[in-house]
């Protein structure tokens, strides 16, 4: 499988990464080089094989369903590029 420039633009948008028109052709080449590299996986017979989701035979550990942290709004907001009181500020999303 290989991608064309329309697909490159679509992937970039899904990735929320702006691309300049001039970059599209180069990206198309690079992405296709990687896709060509992974092509050989199609040669493997995977029928009846379960996908590996965890390398360790372990059950998800669960903790008690209680509040164990919090009350640190200042610390949470300390690195925000824009904040107001205890809120993150973003460009307007509702007209």
């Amino acid at each position: 499988m290989s991608v064309d420039s329309a697909v490159v633009r679509r992937i970039a948008h899904l990735s929320r990464i702006a691309v300049e028109d001039a970059e599209v052709e180069r990206l198309r080449g690079e992405l296709n080089a990687i896709l060509a590299f992974v092509e050989e996986l199609n040669a493997v017979d995977v029928s009846g094989v379960e996908p590996l989701t965890s390398v360790l035979p372990m059950n998800m550990k669960k903790r008690a369903d209680v509040v164990n942290d919090g009350g640190i709004a200042d610390a949470v907001l300390a690195n925000a590029p824009e904040r107001e009181d205890h809120f993150f500020v973003v460009p307007k999303v509702i007209e």
Binding site: V38, V49, E50, L52, T53, V55
Partner: peptide, 15 residues
């Protein structure tokens, strides 16, 4: 399925 799930299956085989 074609890429990600297949790769995860191959990961099982490698392990």
């Amino acid at each position: 399925d074609a890429y990600y799930v297949r790769a995860q299956k191959i990961r099982s085989l490698i392990k």
